[in-house]
């Protein structure tokens, strides 16, 4: 009857211990290219123009990278790193939340026209393997209770007003995290009559999470960076 008890006991705890211990399990991240030596042809291989030629080789703008791995294979190749601590802070981003938020933050997620990929990853941070509550992250139903607004998607025309209303409904102090390539610059949707081309076009953005979609640990990293518990990385890397 109680087979699951023995099953669970024999399997042991599978929840990640990151950020206390490093997490190296296969599949927790799609990885990302790092800037390095390369020619203009290598940069031209990138379908999203995330790679750009530089004096010393090829630089990477993580705000565009969708982990397609075309730059990873072939004659010329960039080094591919299996990390996920790539959240970065735009120039106009505000500083981290005060220290009293360091043990618990409440997050409201808004899907501003995302494809569903980001939503899938958000769901995973509540799964046993990642368990957001162990680091004090909670999802709320209303922006009235939220400290952090997590936004995915390029902000479609229909979601402009709701997004702004949600931001205005939040109490101070508040921070905005734009999640995924679309939320950073519109991504594959770009800027058009139907798409604002990123969250920053509508409300101030304090942190961005590159990735398409960002893996769960990258989201947790970003939400810890909101409270200053982890350090953000650079968005654009020159060789």
């Amino acid at each position: 009857m109680a087979n699951w008890v023995f099953h669970s006991l024999s399997r042991g705890i599978r929840t990640t211990r990151w950020p206390t211990d490093p997490e190296t399990a296969a599949g927790v991240t799609p990885g990302r290219p790092r800037a390095g030596v390369g020619s203009a042809e290598l940069a031209a291989r990138c379908p999203t123009e995330a790679l750009f030629p530089h004096d010393n080789g090829v630089g990477v703008d993580f705000g565009h990278c969708v982990h397609c791995q075309r730059c990873r294979h072939g004659d010329e190749a960039l080094a591919w790193e299996q990390d996920f601590t790539w959240t970065s802070k735009p120039e106009q981003g505000r500083e981290a939340l005060p220290a009293r938020f360091s043990r618990s933050i409440h997050v409201r997620y808004i899907d501003a026209g995302a494809c569903g990929g980001c939503m899938g990853e958000i769901r995973l941070i509540d799964a046993p393997a990642y368990n957001m509550h162990r680091v004090g992250i909670f999802i709320t139903a209303t922006p009235r209770d939220a400290d952090v607004l997590l936004v995915g998607g390029p902000v479609t025309e229909a979601m402009r007003e709701p997004l702004r209303k949600a931001y205005e409904a939040m109490p101070e102090p508040k921070r905005v995290v734009a999640m995924g390539v679309c939320a950073i610059n519109g991504g594959v949707f770009g800027t058009s009559f139907a798409s604002a081309g990123g969250v920053a076009a509508e409300i101030p953005v304090d942190l961005v999470i590159p990735g398409c979609p960002p893996p769960p640990l990258a989201i947790i990293h970003a939400l810890l960076a909101v409270t200053g518990r982890t350090e953000p990385a650079e968005l654009v890397e020159n060789p």
Partner: peptide, 14 residues
Amino acid sequence: RRVQRGRVWDAGLV
């Protein structure tokens, strides 16, 4: 006593 006054939160309805 910092009171912030905002609009009614209407779940983002237009």
